[in-house]
Nucleic acid binder design. Structure first.
Lengths: 363, 363
DNA sequence: GCAACATTTGAATGCGTATTCACTAAAAAT
DNA sequence: ATTTTTAGTGAATACGCATTCAAATGTTGC
């Protein structure tokens, strides 16, 4: 049926059939344009000394040859890759998707590339860091928890800055940016108190995550200060996911509805949403009439109709900007800043899972 | 209060204060181990000819120096970077988050790195491709729509394979993998018909996206075959987001509830969810009693309680595997396969937004 | 018209590794 | 015991570009 030459034409070189052709290099462009290789390099390096007319001639030659500079080769001499590594723990949580989106948007706008890694929740990031090191990235963003101090010092020795995002390592001098999670926990406690709650529960996430710990601590502290008895502050453990919270709530209250508190603080929005669905759809409860719910993060889903979750917003854009500024990508000669721990405050967003004491103030 | 030397010890070189130190190279390791640089290179290259005892000695020396091979340098000689670029259009749609997760998981397990790009929806990917080319990636996954044929041929010339994911370019010989969107549209039409619907609407997404077009086409074709009049098959346009669908539905029916059809097909799950919330929360309708709803993708959110969306599942894992197999990352010497268009069938997942004609068959 | 200066230019070199090539030592085959 | 094979090794080189250095060209001021 089909003849030999039935491959669709691709409109390109006839010599393309084999893979790994001799690539077009700056020498080829130089030859075509009648200049030296140095000139070609200069034509593609902004701010270098080259006559405009010559640059144009070179660019034209490059265009004709479909020449694209080889960043790998140039990285070898400049010792800059323009690559930033982003190591993520948990893309199942929309908050971290938002974080990733923001990092990508910012870095891409700066002309940098993003090397993305995921690390199983709770697993340690050492292997990812090692891989990152091989690629000589200009900086590392780490949103995943575990990181050995050995790794931080190796990175430091090699001059690669790391920023912990919404994490910190107690006793380490690794720099980081985070939301004021403790303060945010306090905000949520105050919101519940203002709405008249007297008994409470928290759905905690990963017990090793500082994020969860801090929110729990701030929340608890504030309640104690307000005179709430420890006995009236319950804790539920669950996987840090929608399903984890859903099941944890069912496990805790389905058989003992009498233990249900006035208010439940989901340590992040996705868990608060899981809790809400369990309480409403499986236990037939009304929110906030039967139980109040609070979350943390303010992911886009939280404002959607089924949830309308009252939550603490993390200013992601700001946090990302802070993180990137700590990296000092533009001044690689600067010594790495260590021991920085920038905290940005969260903000309570009133929606409808906690009755508003006075007037609503959504946004 | 604090003395000069109050920096926490980092357990590393004392010479670490300055950035851009002379890096540790294979020559340093060679010197310490008393071998040649070639030997060091071989020690880190699996399958190369080196005595096991010597390799161990080298590895030990490397460990003592915290030596990590420089992949940038090695890429220059091997012409392989072990980097795959993933270009994404829309991380606001959880489906593509799932796709990204899957690619990362697979590639990371193979020891490859992922360079992530996002392209504004509808914008063209040429700039991203150009950046990708500079980094000499081993392959490109493209989930975003627009791609000039000039770019595909440039990639082809340079021996860089591209796979379109859930997209195709009519008239191009670019390879791709996609769900059988047309067939999926038909499945949904059949589900609605079986449930007794006689009037329909579709909420279309990006009009330029082949994904949306194909689903619309399959859905419509099947309905026509079943004898439904064109007048009973409506179309609503909206941004391909939750809010887009939410607003589109409100705009179409809020003032004219009499125009509401028996069944609405959201071209993807996130839009179907937006539609559901608009219909239920804003228009007080019951689903599926007042309107049936169908989606497409089967994102994790679809099975959650507020939605329980009947939808067409895309087998993401399978599609990702197919995409990677087309890339032939393990046989770079092979000529690039062009013109491949693998389609994998979707599968209808019955949940509760369409009344089940007989018995339910959720998973 | 010439000195003093600023701007362009190309040859040569280095970045850190993989690989080729020629060679040695050890093992196997004769 | 000698030849043939095999495994192991180091010196040298290439990969594609940025950058340094010295030379060449162009510009300005007097």
């Amino acid at each position: 049926m089909s003849e030999v030459a039935d491959f669709p034409p691709s409109g390109s070189d006839p010599a393309m059939a084999r893979r790994i052709q001799s690539r077009v290099t700056s020498f080829d462009v130089a030859a075509l344009a009648g200049v030296s290789q140095s000139a070609v390099s200069r034509a593609f390096t902004p701010g270098s000394s080259i006559a405009e007319a010559k640059r144009q001639r070179i660019l034209e030659a490059a265009r004709r040859l479909n020449y694209v500079p080889n960043s790998i080769a140039s990285s070898l001499t400049t010792k800059r890759t323009n690559i930033v590594a982003v190591i993520l723990g948990n893309l199942a949580n929309p908050f971290y998707v938002e974080v990733l989106r923001t990092f990508i948007a910012r870095l891409q706008a700066q002309g940098r590339q993003i090397l993305t890694f995921t690390v199983d929740n709770g697993a340690d990031s050492d292997e990812a860091i090692l891989r990152v090191l091989r690629y000589q990235v200009d900086g590392v963003i780490l949103t995943s928890a575990q990181l050995s101090t050995r790794m931080t010092s190796i990175c430091h020795d090699r001059g690669i800055p790391i920023v912990l995002f919404n994490r910190y390592i107690p006793g380490s001098d690794a720099s980081g940016v985070r939301c004021d999670n403790t303060g945010g926990g306090r905000l949520m406690a105050e919101a519940f108190l203002a709405a008249g709650a007297r008994s409470f529960a928290m759905i905690k996430g990963d017990p090793k995550g500082t994020t969860s710990q801090d929110r729990v601590r701030g929340f608890t502290e504030r309640l104690i200060e307000a005179g709430i008895a420890r006995a009236d502050i319950g804790e539920i453990e669950g996987q840090s996911t929608y399903d984890g919270a859903f099941n944890a709530v069912l496990g805790a209250y389905r058989r003992k509805p009498e233990r249900l508190p006035d208010a439940i603080f989901g340590i992040n929005d996705i868990m608060a949403m899981g809790a809400m669905d369990a309480l409403r759809q499986r236990m037939g409860l009304k929110i906030p009439d039967d139980v109040m719910i609070g979350g943390f993060d303010d992911i886009p889903e939280s404002r959607r109709h089924p949830y309308q979750l009252t939550t603490v917003r993390q200013p992601v854009g700001l946090m990302v900007d802070e993180a990137l500024s700590i990296l000092h990508l533009d001044e690689p000669a600067q010594p790495i800043e260590m021991g920085i721990d920038r905290q940005v405050p969260g903000r309570l967003i009133w929606r409808s899972t906690i009755p508003t004491p006075t007037a609503s103030s959504e946004d």
